[in-house]
Structures are given as structure tokens and as C-alpha cells.
């Protein structure tokens, strides 16, 4: 087969018109191939109805007595809403920042005027299990999977988790109603 003048064997110092044609065609084809891949990647992202379903939700706080908590779901994630006792609030506020793995004040994690309410995403920052409320040594949350312990402000105190429980975006619509998202 070698005898049949294969195009690429010819050595040439300068680019010729023919080379330009080959390069241009290759470049156009490469651009097209790259563009064609995009829809196949983009379709993996959340679709429009999933995004729309992730709109903010409102939660009525009246049924939650002091010392109790509820778990609601927002965007498929469990959100703990905890009505903390004064003792819990006090403990959270009196903990020196130097004791914390991920230093953050309780004030920064709650809304002023609504100090008793703790709203956190109930997903352990270690590997995604759901910690149990009102358990563990710090009267906060205890993750049964790998033993991470969070305090009454949802801050990591002990165990393998690296970070505090995240605070979702939320605001108080009224004293008894909170909007999450």
C-alpha cells in the first residue's frame, strides 16, 4: 500500500494552501464536536421543574414548643428548626471560640430578636448522614454514622466532621412564621 503516494509523507518547510485547507477543516470539525458535546453535559444539570420546585417555603412556628424541634424538607434537604431553651442558648453563647474547630459565634448563626430559634441544614458535614437532635454531649446533635457531635448552635465540637452544620438562607416573615430559601 505504501506505493500509493500517501499525502502526509511529503515534507515541506512552509505551510501550503493545502495545509491551510486541512487545518481549517480540522478546526471547524473540532469546534463542531465540542459544541455538540455541550447539550449532553448540560442535560445532567437540574431541569427547570426541579429548579422551580426548589422555591422558598414558609414554615409556621407556633406548634414548636420550647425544647422541641421539627424537621422540614427544602430542596430535598432536611432542615432542623429548633426552639432552644434559655439554657441551650446560654451554653451556645458562653462557649469560647477557642474551643471550636470551626469558630463561629452563636450570634452569627441566629437572627437577632429570635435568638431561641436555630435553623440548620441537618446534614452532617462529614459524609452526609442526618444527625439526631437533642443527643450527644453538647445538647445539640449527634451523628450516628461516625460519631460527630454538634452543640446547641449546630457547631462541630467532636468527631470527624470538619465544619459546623450549615445555615440555610432564611428570614422571619413574622414572629411565628419563617421563610426558608
Amino acid at each position: 500500500m505504501k506505493g500509493l503516494g500517501i499525502v502526509t509523507t511529503e515534507a515541506s518547510a512552509e505551510p501550503t494552501r493545502r495545509d491551510f485547507l486541512y487545518i481549517a477543516t480540522g478546526a471547524v470539525a473540532a469546534v463542531g464536536a465540542a459544541a455538540a458535546v455541550w447539550p449532553f453535559i448540560s442535560q445532567m444539570n437540574p431541569d427547570a421543574s426541579t429548579i422551580a420546585a426548589g422555591a422558598p417555603i414558609e414554615v409556621d412556628l407556633t406548634p414548636i414548643a420550647q425544647g422541641q424541634d421539627i424537621k422540614v424538607f427544602w430542596r430535598g434537604q432536611p432542615i432542623y428548626i429548633m426552639n432552644r431553651t434559655p439554657k441551650q442558648v446560654e451554653e451556645a453563647r458562653n462557649t469560647p471560640l477557642s474551643d471550636l474547630k470551626d469558630p463561629q459565634t452563636d450570634q452569627a448563626r441566629t437572627k437577632e430578636g429570635h435568638e431561641n430559634w436555630l435553623v440548620v441544614v441537618g446534614i452532617c458535614t462529614h459524609l452526609g448522614c442526618i444527625p439526631i437532635a437533642h443527643e450527644g454531649k453538647y445538647d445539640g446533635f449527634f451523628c450516628p454514622c461516625h460519631g460527630s457531635q454538634y452543640d446547641s448552635s449546630g457547631r462541630i465540637r467532636q468527631g470527624p466532621a470538619p465544619l459546623n452544620l450549615p445555615i440555610p438562607p432564611y428570614q422571619f416573615v413574622s414572629d411565628t412564621k419563617v421563610q426558608i430559601g
Partner: peptide
């Protein structure tokens, strides 16, 4: 229909 209407480029696919 959700594919065609909501998935990114779903109508194309």
C-alpha cells in the same frame, strides 16, 4: 413531555 419542556436541551435530544 417533561424532557421536551424542562430538561436542558431535552427537546433537542
Amino acid at each position: 413531555e417533561r424532557i421536551v419542556r424542562d430538561v436542558n436541551y431535552g427537546w433537542l435530544l
